[in-house]
Design a protein around this nucleic acid. Structure first.
Lengths: 335, 335
DNA sequence: CTGAAAGCGCTAACAG
DNA sequence: CTGTTAGCGCTTTCAG
């Protein structure tokens, strides 16, 4: 490894001068600048950022922690984060926890040891309280999508209850009375809120929810698949299904296809989260769309406000509205 | 920030003892161990890994550089990498270049400054020669999926030519003679090899390729969409389309759906890369499947061999075979 | 304008 | 078994 010392030696100047020239292209006499840059180039010198970080106290890296890298929702958020990080000359370290609290803790511990300057996180479970330990002064973070109740920090979330409410109300208006809900993880706020939105829509319509219609799908493809099969085996089948996230929608569609249930003739379907295939699916899927990319950019902007000390003292919580995108997977109920 | 010094002070021992106890739970007298751990706990001490990395010369982080985080192919690879990294007590930093050479260079420069111990990369373009500069001794890396010609390193690739050959031969056997190819980026080996496989299949069948049937899709959804529209506008339409990756397949299907072209009655379709939605798509998609997860684990294992010095001196190139998964999107040609 | 030297927080000889 | 001390490579006072 060639270090600043080697460059200084080669250039015949002090390491201080090398450091200065490298960090400020206008520093010093033209002559010395030339010598330094020539030496650096000749030796193929690459400054050691670890050493730099050590003295500077920052790494110019932020982390984005997501629970499921296969879910387009999170990858789309990631692109938003990356774009603003890039603007601030930061790199983003993407960490996938796979909904695993152990892995999440490992990452957070890594962060606490100053490897990143801050992070954005969609927690695996809101029962995890690893975040309590992080000192927000030296390591700011912002919640995205899912928050931990009781842990205060900046947050960018979507009004999940409202999204679910809109979806279920839409179905109700089409005359459906037996709407299956493939529910998300009950240990996440998003999972619980979408369930509440479902219940509220029923309540607003003055109809009682049949609890048999609410099946756990755990936010996974497999969960959605199994949940749908369970729903189909019910004595009295639902006429519509609302899947509370992207992955479960995929599982649901797979089960429906296998069982040769026609959409929307035999079953109306609404998914939470839009995605690239939802639009060209036959029939095109009606979904609740979240502003994923914006969530990413907003979260990153707030994080950089903290990093640069330009953020207001109080925590900011921005709640975005989801949107119902009506396509062709829901029809009127058939008696 | 509480440092090792504070802990030493609190515990009434030297910093060396603190360091030792923290790194070796069996070190020293029971009494001192107790004092140290108690002090550390009381102060909420978290070792500064940057400082540690500085003296150790490693960070216990590897990076995985991918060109498109929205592409399931790469996210699946990522999960393979993560699983083995986890086994070795390493964290993985996922870096998305968005097929952008500038971003890729920024990441590589970051790596060269010792922020990671090694990396796995699917290059944005094989014309990028940033990798020439990295010193494989101090910063090993392994190519995955795409390699740079002329840059020698370990590599895990798929026999792309063979995959494309199988797909096109399948179509040829079904009687298709006019097979549209939505080709990938010509500045990547995968893009070129899939094109060659297409041509070879034609040649093997003794048929001349109509160059009008080969349209560039740039590996993106939009590219696939536009390419398909171009193909549909041809005086003499193809009867089948082979899309050379995941994203372009999505774009292709969207264009076909819009134009109300029925699959497989009016158009047979084969995609390169399997994905979660391909199976439940109506009709289920015939695809060339790559062993994504294994590619990730293999690449990571080789990287760790390098990191631990247990790798053979010569570069390893493992070539995996893709598999043709026949489902229902291809039918016999209709005259 | 430039160099010497003090540290950033930690590990690892080297002594005792 | 434990403490002292010398760095790791870099930035940044502080002098000259």
């Amino acid at each position: 490894m060639t270090t600043i010392k080697d460059v200084a030696l080669e250039a015949g100047v002090s390491i201080a001068s090398v450091s200065r020239v490298l960090n400020d292209p206008n520093y010093g006499s033209v002559e010395m600048r030339m010598k330094v840059t020539a030496a650096a180039k000749k030796l193929g010198y690459q400054p050691n950022k670890i050493a730099r970080s050590m003295v500077m106290g920052r790494t110019n890296i932020i982390a984005l922690v997501i629970p499921d890298i296969r879910n387009q929702f999170f990858t789309s958020v990631a692109r938003g984060v990356e774009d603003v990080a890039s603007k601030y000359e930061y790199r983003v370290m993407l960490c996938n926890t796979d909904e695993n609290s152990i892995r999440q803790r490992q990452y957070i511990d890594t962060f606490r040891s100053k490897i990143v300057d801050g992070f954005i996180i969609a927690v695996a479970s809101d029962r995890d309280h690893d975040l309590d330990k992080v000192d927000r002064e030296t390591l700011p973070f912002v919640f995205i999508d899912r928050v931990c109740e009781g842990v205060s920090a900046d947050a960018i979330v979507v009004d999940n209850r409202n999204g679910a409410y809109k979806a279920v109300s839409h179905l109700l208006e089409l005359g459906h009375r037996r709407i299956g809900l493939i529910a998300g993880k009950s240990d996440t706020l998003t999972g619980r809120e979408r369930l509440r939105g479902y219940e509220e829509a029923y309540r607003a319509a003055g109809i009682t929810v049949d609890q048999a219609l609410v099946v756990d799908g755990n936010f996974t493809i497999e969960g959605g698949y199994e949940a749908t099969k369970a729903l189909l085996e019910l004595g009295e089948r639902p006429t519509a299904i609302f899947a509370a996230n992207n992955s479960m929608t995929i599982g649901c569609l797979r089960a429906l296809t296998e069982a040769q249930v026609r959409i929307p003739e035999d079953m109306s379907v609404i998914g939470f989260d839009d995605s690239e295939w939802a639009e060209f699916f036959v029939p095109p899927l009606t979904v609740v769309r979240q502003p994923t990319y914006s969530m990413g950019t907003l979260a990153a902007e707030i994080l950089f406000q903290r990093l640069t000390g330009t953020a207001p003292p109080e925590w900011q919580e921005v709640v975005l509205k989801p949107e119902l995108v009506i396509r062709a997977s829901c029809g009127p109920v058939r008696w």
